[in-house]
């Protein structure tokens, strides 16, 4: 038990000090923002929304995994997040089900 705790603390500390990774992620987010802005000027037709949402999803994953430390936390947090995403998607899905068939 103690060794597990020590391991967790060690892991936490080592990840807390990987500033290089954080800076890399930060520039990645900036690049993705630039892509979003650039693409907004292109006429992609019905794909416009999909592309914007895909980029936003990638950015969300980066923030959650690195800045919010989900990548380094215990699996239970990943389960929590997955449950939230599934419920959120179901809410959106059921609402749009009405809109599509109305």
């Amino acid at each position: 038990m103690d060794s597990e705790k020590e391991k967790a603390i060690h892991e936490h500390e080592s990840h807390s000090h990987e500033y290089g990774v954080y800076i890399l992620v930060f520039f990645g987010l900036l690049a993705l923002t630039a892509i979003t802005v650039s693409i907004a000027g292109l006429n992609l037709g019905s794909l416009t929304l999909t592309v914007a949402l895909v980029i936003a999803t990638i950015k969300t994953c980066l923030v959650a995994n690195y800045f919010m430390h989900v990548k380094f936390d215990s699996p239970i947090f990943k389960v929590f997040i997955a449950v939230c995403i599934v419920i959120f998607a179901t809410m959106i899905g059921l609402t749009f089900f009405d809109l599509i068939f109305r």
């Binding site: 179901t90 059921l94 089900f97 009405d98 809109l99 599509i100 068939f101 109305r102």
Partner: peptide, 16 residues
């Protein structure tokens, strides 16, 4: 997942 039962007469789609 059941919230729509409050809206059966509000103009929601038949499928929903």
């Amino acid at each position: 997942l059941v919230w729509g039962h409050h809206m059966f007469t509000s103009g929601m789609s038949d499928t929903s």
